[in-house]
């Protein structure tokens, strides 16, 4: 199985192993990656699993639907490659993925 890396705002790295049928948010939660709150439990309704995807990986994380776009627009920490981790479906194609955590979740 592949691996993915979460990088905290202070530079701390967390490598996690890819598990089948889990969103990126669930990977963070199950591996105790700090800085992902996921208050709504993965419903694309709170904006607290915001991650900033490494440029080279952005296109591979899939399309952003209208709901996610709207929630991301409300995030003061938004960046061009922002995503909500609960909306990223993880497959082996994301082996090596690197995402950055914002300093604050909204």
């Amino acid at each position: 199985m592949g691996r993915m890396t979460f990088i905290e705002h202070d530079g701390t790295r967390h490598e996690v192993e890819i598990e089948a049928d889990k969103s990126l948010m669930q990977h963070a939660a199950d591996n105790m990656v700090p800085g992902i709150d996921a208050d709504c439990g993965g419903e694309c309704a709170c904006g607290t699993c915001h991650v900033i995807v490494d440029h080279q990986w952005f296109a591979k994380t899939g399309a952003i639907n209208g709901n996610e776009k709207q929630m991301l627009e409300m995030t003061p920490e938004g960046a061009p490659t922002s995503r909500l981790a609960c909306q990223i479906e993880v497959t082996d194609a994301l082996d090596g993925l690197v995402v950055h955590l914002p300093e604050f979740q909204m």
Partner: peptide, 19 residues
């Protein structure tokens, strides 16, 4: 999972002052 409550609402009207 104490954070998974409804008091701030969800969606576009989610409480802006939550933090």
């Amino acid at each position: 999972g104490a954070r998974n409550h409804l008091s701030f609402g969800f969606g576009v009207h989610r409480c802006m002052g939550n933090r």
